[in-house]
Amino acid sequence: MFEARLAQSAILKKVLEAVKDLLTEATFECSDSGIQVQAMDNAHVSLVSLNLRSDGFDKYRCDRNLSMGMNIGTMTKILRCASSEDTVTLRAWDNPDNIIFIFESQNKEKLSEYEMKLINMDQEHLGIPETVYSCVVKMPSQEFARICKDLSQFGEAITIACSKEGIKFTAAGDYGNANIKLAQTAEADKEEEAVIIDMQEPVKLTFACRYLNSFVKATPLCAQVKLSMSGDVPLVCEYQIGDIGHIRYYLAPKIDD
């Protein structure tokens, strides 16, 4: 049997909102250690890696490893039926055809059950090598979302240049160009407002706006986002999910033809 319970469905609701633009379906690998999802978007340009540790759940039981193929659109619809304060329980039997989502209101007076059919999926699992990145930037996630949105008006791609002094975002298009520079924070009163740059060597990489704007849908999950970059390797855009895990987005850089 598999059963995982969260005291508040808000986290799971936010996780679904953070992946639904990129993924139509995904396999949820459930084991004793937790739930893992690794899936690419349809165009195979980006990869989403989600990790929810079992110890972060209020109740977690997984008698045997399960691979459950889920339709992300349906799952998003189901999670939207839960109130943020509802308790959510995911339940499946061994060799399941279905997964059950159970929402219970705080006063325990409303109990909703949604059963979703699982799908058989050919899955391609990718090994992600351990990488030491040239630049690792931590910055407020809302600021990153704002920059991606603002610069998307000017072009289809954003160039990110990172040096010791700061991080510069540039977009250029037919109507003009724009750039936004953020300096490393000297002294931040609040940790979540800080811009912190850990640089081994400067990098300059260009990424498609479309994907960055999908990644920032994870903004409600965490006040800070971590961007890890090295020359000619995928960007890693990471959001912590409370004390339970993280979501990482990998995006291949654009290259000159």
Binding site: V45, L47, H125, A157, A208, D256
Partner: peptide, 13 residues
């Protein structure tokens, strides 16, 4: 500019 597939950066397991 062109876009490489993410699969070209990682190994299939």
């Amino acid at each position: 500019m062109s876009q490489r597939s993410i699969t070209s950066f990682f190994t299939r397991t």
